[in-house]
């Protein structure tokens, strides 16, 4: 059986309305052949976690440019694992200072992409980090 395409959720959590990056990533990943769902704006962490589970995605990419990353990333990860979906990979991007990245990685974020990242880096990450996990799970 041919393996199904990777399913991804691109999410905007909190009140942050900066959606240029999220939309570009969503489009680039769709063009690269993934199945992409975009949450739209102003979602709570609860809504994003629920959508991720309901849509049975392989990974969630969160875009945060408001400075609330240290609060919102860990919250989504905690909610996913509480609902038994800790296997869903969480990655993200936005205006995130280098100093905050180790803390986010320790909290379970798989990868943080900072401004200027080419979309091809995100695709490379998905192929190298997320695709093998799917192969193992199936």
């Amino acid at each position: 059986m041919a393996q199904t395409r990777m399913r991804l959720l691109i999410g905007k959590v909190g009140l942050d309305g900066h959606d240029r990056g999220a939309k570009i990533i969503a489009r680039a990943l769709r063009d690269a052949g993934y199945e992409v769902i975009y949450t739209g704006l102003h979602q709570t962490a609860e809504q994003v976690a629920a959508t991720a589970i309901q849509e049975d995605v392989d990974a969630v990419g969160l875009s945060i440019l408001s400075g609330a990353h240290n609060t919102l990333f860990p919250k989504v990860i905690k909610l996913l694992s509480e609902k038994g979906a800790g296997d869903i990979v969480v990655f993200g991007g936005g205006i995130i200072p280098d100093d905050d990245i180790p803390g986010l990685l320790a909290a379970g974020v798989a990868k943080i992409f900072t401004p200027g990242t080419p979309t091809s880096d995100v695709i490379k990450f998905l192929e190298e980090e997320v695709a093998p996990k799917r192969a193992n799970a199936r």
Partner: peptide, 11 residues
Amino acid sequence: SPLAEGEVGKE
């Protein structure tokens, strides 16, 4: 507001 969590005074 709960939606303001982590965003107060940030931007």
